[in-house]
Write a protein that binds this DNA or RNA. Structure first.
Lengths: 204, 204
DNA sequence: ATATTAAATCATACGCGTATACTATTTTGT
DNA sequence: ACAAAATAGTATACGCGTATGATTTAATAT
């Protein structure tokens, strides 16, 4: 039953205009969320800035959180732009991985607001995150780390040991970010030392 | 200027009754938050269960989040009860650390709701967290890990290398928990493998 | 006794995200 | 031209956390 379009009645918005308006909303939202914080920007406010009634926004996104989710890809993209840039100047595989890790962690630590937007969000449910992490595009970004680890070990990128080591490293880096950002009262060792330590381990 | 108490007017609640009612509220809140989730339990509902007007709760806690913060110590305590119990049966320092790490991570992974309550909370600000992590009692709990690492290396618990290694380990474990719990769509290596990997590294 | 004072408590109200029910718009079939 | 139909958009309302101001309570000074 291929859900055929009805012959009468107002037609749905074209995919183009739908996408266009979603983009418009997302770009305004990005600006506002970054400058004033996710929680502080209300749907009423966002609607006003975009030129829509608050409820009209729901024609384009099912919830406020979904608007945020749309920005994840963009923000993660920015983080990885810095990561890949950092690997360019490296002359050894070890150095490349080290640079990548430092760049990744320092991006999020320097942009705590981005970190909160992506990793620490209010009421982000499993399915929400799944829809974001599940995006091929986003997963693909993390391949930089797999490549770097594989090259460093002159192993195949698909080798099980590379998978374990890289998953471990990514978790480790996330843990450093998460701990240092969210538990600022604790006397942590400084980030670059922890990252260097984490990377060293991957080299066996 | 020692802020002397006025001679007229209704006296403030005694520290005892204040503490008593705070405890009463906290225990009802714990029950409800665990069974129905933090977000789903409204202050109106909590007030009704405790036998107070919603706004009367604010005489005892400045915000809903502060009620939650009061429960952090309790929940973290439960996690560490399991951690210390796990180290009892161990016969080598290596084994003790391994058991401790596995117990810590599995506690949070098995009690995702507790994890969210403590580590992933909506709108937890820096100062909020500081007030919780800053509590001597909570910080002291983490000493199990420092002790275990020190013993394994036959080093002093205060040695800088022990500090770095243990901070790194704690971050690593937090990262494993955080990543596996919040990004369930990603094909992670399973937790115990990652934890074993993390622990092995601390042993040089 | 009673007025005075300060704390405790409560009632009301605000802006939030958004569910729901309504109106407006735009198309096709007659 | 116009009725019917289906989508786009809007107005209203709900429960939320909680700020604010009014009311009640419990003590002392007269």
């Amino acid at each position: 039953m291929p859900e055929q379009t009805p012959t009468r009645g107002r037609p749905t918005l074209s995919q183009d205009t739908l996408a266009e308006r979603r983009d418009e909303i997302a770009s305004v939202a990005l600006r506002l969320f970054l400058s004033e914080g996710f929680a502080s920007v209300s749907m009423r406010r966002l609607g006003k800035e975009v030129g829509l009634t608050p409820m009209a926004l729901y024609r384009y996104y099912p919830s406020k959180l979904d608007i945020l989710a749309r920005l994840w890809g963009y923000i993660i993209g920015k983080a990885f732009d810095r990561v890949t840039a950092a690997t360019q100047g490296a002359d050894t595989p070890e150095d490349a991985l080290s640079q990548a890790a430092q760049a990744y962690v320092s991006y999020w630590c320097e942009n705590k607001d981005h970190y909160h937007l992506v990793f620490m969000n209010p009421g982000v449910t499993d399915t929400d995150v799944r829809s974001f992490v599940g995006e091929e595009e986003t997963i693909a970004r993390y391949d930089v780390f797999f490549q770097a680890v594989a090259k460093m070990r002159s192993a195949d990128r698909m080798a099980p040991s590379v998978k374990i080591a890289t998953d471990g490293l990514i978790c480790h880096l996330h843990g450093i970010m998460h701990s240092l950002i969210t538990m600022q009262g604790y006397p942590w060792t400084q980030a670059d030392t922890l990252v260097a330590d984490a990377v060293e381990r991957v080299g066996r």
